[in-house]
């Protein structure tokens, strides 16, 4: 079976059309522990890999609601319960005046959730990853596209997966060291 130390096999493409077609074939062939790499966001590539949903929007909604409740709650607690002050005869619970800060905390919490949530869902920061061992992988941030099938995939077989990847017409297929 797979030799230890092998993370997976990586195929390199130079064209977005080719990589999307190849990614679709990889997914259709039943491989699931797969990933593709592109120098810019390619919606079609994400779809070809069978990825549809991101949990991020729900998290951001929850973050925003938390910000709203926290912001308004702080204002209410500070102005009505903890430190009630008569200012210009306005009611302690001056709800119209409480809207701007509560709005800002809603945005702040939602935006923080969007950024931290994106990093967390992506597992970043991640200083080391086996794909960086492929010598030409530096071009993934310039003009090359890559598809990687991991050795831990149940369908993975060093020889058959190798020839399968070759049949997709890549520039080159290389082994990814752990």
């Amino acid at each position: 079976m797979t030799r230890p130390g092998l993370y997976g096999l990586m195929a390199e493409f130079s064209d977005p059309t080719e990589v999307v077609a190849a990614a679709r074939k990889v997914h259709e062939a039943g491989y699931r522990k797969i990933d593709a790499f592109s120098p810019y966001p390619l919606e079609a590539l994400t779809e070809a890999l069978g990825l549809h949903h991101s949990r991020l929007p729900l998290l951001v909604l929850l973050g925003g609601v938390t910000g709203l409740v926290a912001g308004y709650g702080l204002e209410y607690w500070a102005s009505v319960i903890e430190y009630p002050m008569n200012i210009g005869g306005k009611p302690f619970h001056s709800w119209p005046a409480f809207i701007p800060p509560a709005f800002e905390t809603t945005i702040l919490f939602a935006a923080l959730t969007a950024v931290l949530g994106m990093l967390a869902l992506n597992g970043l920061p991640e200083p080391y990853h086996p794909v960086f061992n492929v010598p030409t992988f530096a071009l993934a941030t310039k003009d090359r596209f890559f598809i990687c099938i991991e050795a831990s995939d149940p369908k993975f077989d060093p020889d058959r997966t190798w020839s399968f990847l070759l049949s997709l017409g890549p520039r080159v297929v290389s082994e990814v060291e752990q």
Binding site: A23, F37, S38
Partner: peptide
């Protein structure tokens, strides 16, 4: 932060 242009990452990004 270890960005590698993964399609999964781009999706969330």
């Amino acid at each position: 932060m270890g960005w590698r242009g993964s399609a999964r990452h781009w999706h969330n990004y």
